[in-house]
Amino acid sequence: MKEEKLFAENSPISSNRRWGMVIDLDRCTGCQACVVACHAENNVPVVGEAEAAYGRWMHWIHIERYWEGEYPNIKARFMPVLCQQCDEAPCEPVCPVFATYHTDEGLNAQIYNRCIGTRYCGSACPYKVRTFNWFDPEFPEPLKEQLNPNVTVRTRGIMEKCTFCIQRIRQVEEGAKMADRVLEDGEIQPACAQSCPPGAIVFGNLEDEDSLASKLASSRRSFRLLDELGTGPAVIYLKGGETNV
């Protein structure tokens, strides 16, 4: 039985993986498709207009929009920001109950049922990409019908954040293991990458030099957000010449 073997070995994780994401800002149109896809995939609640205006939206990925220049030569800049899955994540050591820790695959894991809601990680995160469940989640009809059964619905009082769609990663990894084959580059698609119309988001293994993500990451256009803080993000942005959006 293959499943038995899977459980006996307990973990399909091998440390030659470092999941990363490349986001090409030159391609991003700020359409927010990734935001919607993420909400749908990860059962992220919608908080409503008033709460969102008070800074309580719960998007795991959000589009930061900055205006550049003076009118009339004004430009909008879009930047999708999600959990940067830092190598040296400031949010991890501060949690008193190990609700967030670093996995072998370089992911910054968030364990919902360990979290007691100190919100320390949220204060420590310089990107402010962690969100808190202010109330019990409400999914107005008919959103209830589309809740993803592979992802838990979080209770009130705990932190959550982008997981790089860990449920999809595990599904593909375990499928490959059961089929006894090597994981192919591009096989794993987080919801945001899958739904991006211009294909600005590329997900892949940064340890694998031949993966598309690795190749893009070594582009001269690449940079990392707040790199100077030394957090070692796994999200790599590409930004080149002038784009008029």
Binding site: C86, E88, C95, T100, H102
Partner: peptide, 13 residues
């Protein structure tokens, strides 16, 4: 459990 890219046993804490 690894946190923050640090060793398992850390001195100052």
């Amino acid at each position: 459990l690894t946190v923050g890219g640090r060793p398992i046993i850390t001195g100052p804490p």
